[in-house]
């Protein structure tokens, strides 16, 4: 259920979509990650986000290379393997007025980066955290990651006999305030989700299944295009109405659920399942576990909390970025030093 009018030549801050593009992708042709980059460009463009006000973060891996392929006008930090959360935390502390979008992978997040990932969730750090999830290590030529489903098979015939880590359940339990899963090939759903994510303040954790065309798109893989098309079961159809767009009138209020976002815009979930309440943590986790048991990949926004304070709110920071405080603010006066010296005598 699309809510936007056809894309204008420029967005509401007067920029054409071209200004949201990045460098040429060096990922494999057909890689799901490229499709996600495209959706990020569309979402940022449609939301009229000023590119200079965005920080793009990443760790290491195929996914983490992708910030080079969108929004060249935004500062970007491709950090070290599994450590995007800490670098992002520091960056947002230095300038909490920025929008921050991070792209990680399943290995970068759920294996080497698990320690920092869970603490980022716990802090509800204001950022959009995207996992481009293909269940496989691409850059090192196709080893299983910790999100690979049990029983899935590598090209080499090796079968994964360990359970997958469900990053969505984890995120819901640990304190992220906007948790969803989508599929790189689902343009409409992913775009709506990303646009809502931009409006959210707090940790947005999006697990985007993104099949690896080279190492994990074959018979036996549970993260292949074919598997996803057969098993993808959306729990809700999304519509996102940004505050500056015309409010879309829905004719069937009995089947929708509106969530008011931080900037006054709203996210409309069209329920395909009865009584799905995205504000109920326990039900959300149960739903994820149930569908997992049934072998389904649920997509949609599972959990939203627009009330919880973000990490930077809790720190009670001044409005101006910490990194740009003038010396008159950051260096105490000589009188203060004199006072300290006297007290130490």
């Amino acid at each position: 259920m699309a809510t936007s009018t056809p894309a204008p030549k420029v967005n509401h801050i007067g920029l054409p979509v071209l200004e949201y593009r990045g460098g040429k992708s060096t990922l494999c042709a057909g890689c799901g990650h490229n499709a996600i980059s495209e959706r990020i460009i569309d979402a940022m463009y449609e939301m009229g986000v000023e590119p200079e006000r965005v920080m793009k973060m990443s760790g290491i891996g195929c996914s983490s290379k992708s910030p080079a392929y969108f929004m060249s006008r935004s500062h970007s930090f491709n950090s070290v393997h599994g450590r995007m959360p800490s670098v992002s935390t520091g960056a947002i502390l230095a300038n909490h007025t920025m929008t921050m979008l991070g792209v990680s992978g399943d290995g970068d997040t759920a294996s080497i980066g698990m320690g920092q990932f869970v603490h980022l969730l716990r802090r509800n750090l204001p950022m959009i955290y995207i996992i481009e999830d293909n269940g496989v290590y691409g850059l090192t030529k196709g080893q299983f990651s910790a999100t690979a489903d049990i029983g899935s098979k590598l090209k080499t015939g090796i079968v994964n006999d360990l359970p997958a880590i469900d990053t969505c359940s984890l995120a819901i339990q640990l304190g992220a305030t906007f948790v969803g899963r989508s599929f790189s090939g689902d343009k409409k759903q992913l775009l709506a989700m990303l646009k809502a994510a931009i409006a959210h303040k707090g940790t947005v954790m999006l697990d985007v299944i993104s099949p690896c065309v080279t190492f994990n798109d074959h018979e036996g893989s549970t993260k292949s295009y074919k598997f996803m098309q057969e098993h993808d079961e959306p729990i809700n159809e999304l519509g996102f109405v940004a505050s500056f767009e015309d409010i879309h009138v829905d004719y069937d209020p009995g089947t929708t659920y509106d969530v008011e976002m931080h900037d006054g815009s709203s996210l409309r979930l069209r329920k395909l399942r009865e009584d799905y309440d995205p504000t109920d943590k326990i039900k959300a986790v149960q739903l994820l576990m149930d569908s997992h048991a049934k072998g389904e990949v649920l997509t949609g926004v599972f959990y939203i909390d627009t009330q919880k304070s973000s990490f930077t709110d809790l720190l009670n920071l001044v409005d101006e970025p910490l990194g740009q405080q003038p010396e008159s603010v950051t260096r105490p006066s000589k009188a203060v030093l004199d006072q300290l010296m006297t007290s130490l005598q």
């Binding site: 950090s79 670098v87 520091g90 970025p321 910490l322």
Partner: peptide, 27 residues
């Protein structure tokens, strides 16, 4: 309001990661 942030990190890796993230962004 605070003109500073003191964060007890989850480990030293995270602590120094935060330092570099902040230094990069101007703090």
């Amino acid at each position: 309001k605070a003109t500073f942030a003191v964060i007890q990190a989850e480990d030293e890796l995270a602590a120094v990661g935060m330092v570099l993230g902040a230094g990069w962004a101007g703090a």
